[in-house]
Simulated scan of single mutants.
Amino acid sequence: MANAKSIFSTVVVLFLLVGLPAISFYYLRTGFTYRKEAIMTQGDFGKMPDLSALTRVQGTLPDNLRGSMAVVGWLDPTKQEATRVYGHMMDSLYQQFADSPNLHFTTIVLSKDPDQTVNEFTQTYHLPEAPMLSFVRADATAFQRSASDFQLPLSQYDAPGTEPIVALVDSSQTIVKHYNLARRDETIGLVQLISVIIPLPEKQDLILDRGREL
């Protein structure tokens, strides 16, 4: 009996000295690899253009985004399907990252009545007036130019807002990637990359499939 207790004690000690460190190293290594792979997917599409010349409709994008991340989108309400998808995805993204620091979502709006468009959009998709959300207006020329400045992957026949494409800007104010929110894999990729760089609030998991599914 004493010999069995001794063997058990030895096994416990070995697990504490060898097993736990090995498991911890494995998870740290896995996490490091995941973070590295996610970051390596980023590109370089130049510095984020200055949007301060565009008229504010709702919310305020900070003058200096250095140290923060930004997701920039284009909204043309005449493109109804793209607007619907963009709205649902903005709802899901906001719900997940509402309490995350140093993250901003701004939308460039093309509309004859941008105030009404933004009011209807935010009410339809449950987006409150919050520090991380902002909307600016642009005329047709500025709308098209902004898409070109952000190097959106549009064909020569597409206009901004035809597809719910967003640009991700990192903490150095570099445009690092574009995502089409109509594609589930790209939306998940956006969520995962943001969550790697800016952690989700404590005890919150990625929302990948639920009522507000991505």
Rank of each mutant, 00 (worst) to 15 (best):
R66T: 09
I198M: 05
F8N: 05
A142F: 02
H104F: 15
P160D: 10
D76E: 13
D113Y: 01
Q144W: 04
L190P: 01
R29Q: 14
Y125R: 03
T106A: 06
L17Q: 06
A142I: 00
S172F: 13
A167S: 15
P101R: 14
K36R: 15
S92V: 02
V12D: 03
S6C: 05
Q192A: 06
V176W: 10
A2V: 08
A98K: 15
A159N: 12
S24P: 00
I194P: 01
P21H: 14
A70T: 04
Q80H: 11
R29T: 06
V85R: 10
I108E: 01
S111V: 01
K112A: 12
L51R: 01
E213H: 12
I207T: 07
D50E: 11
Q156V: 07
T187R: 09
F45D: 05
H88R: 14
Q204M: 07
A38Q: 15
D170E: 05
V196R: 14
V18N: 08
D91I: 01
A140P: 00
Q192L: 09
I175E: 08
D63I: 05
Q144F: 03
A142W: 03
V166D: 03
E202L: 08
Y27K: 06
E37L: 13
V169D: 03
E129D: 12
G46M: 10
H126K: 12
D44A: 06
M48A: 10
Q116E: 09
A70G: 03
N180V: 03
S171T: 03
V72Y: 08
T60R: 13
S100G: 04
P199F: 13
M1A: 11
I175S: 09
A159W: 07
Q123V: 06
L200V: 04
I108A: 03
T174H: 12
I108R: 01
T30R: 15
V13W: 13
P21W: 14
L51N: 01
N180P: 04
E81W: 04
A38H: 10
A147P: 02
T124Q: 15
T187Y: 12
E202P: 00
M40D: 13
K79F: 06
K112C: 00
K203W: 05
D76K: 08
F150N: 02
L65V: 04
Y94R: 06
V176I: 15
G43Y: 07
S171V: 01
D139K: 03
R84D: 09
T33Y: 14
I23R: 07
M89V: 10
I207S: 11
D76R: 09
F32K: 09
E186T: 02
L193V: 08
Y179P: 02
D158T: 06
F45L: 10
F97Q: 06
T187L: 11
T55Q: 15
Q80D: 08
F121K: 00
G161H: 09
E202K: 14
G67Q: 13
L208E: 14
R35K: 14
S171F: 09
D158Q: 15
G87A: 07
A138E: 09
T117G: 00
M69T: 01
R56E: 13
H88T: 05
S172W: 11
D91F: 11
A4C: 02
D205V: 01
G31A: 15
D91L: 11
D113M: 02
A138K: 08
A130V: 05
K79I: 01
A159L: 14
S195P: 02
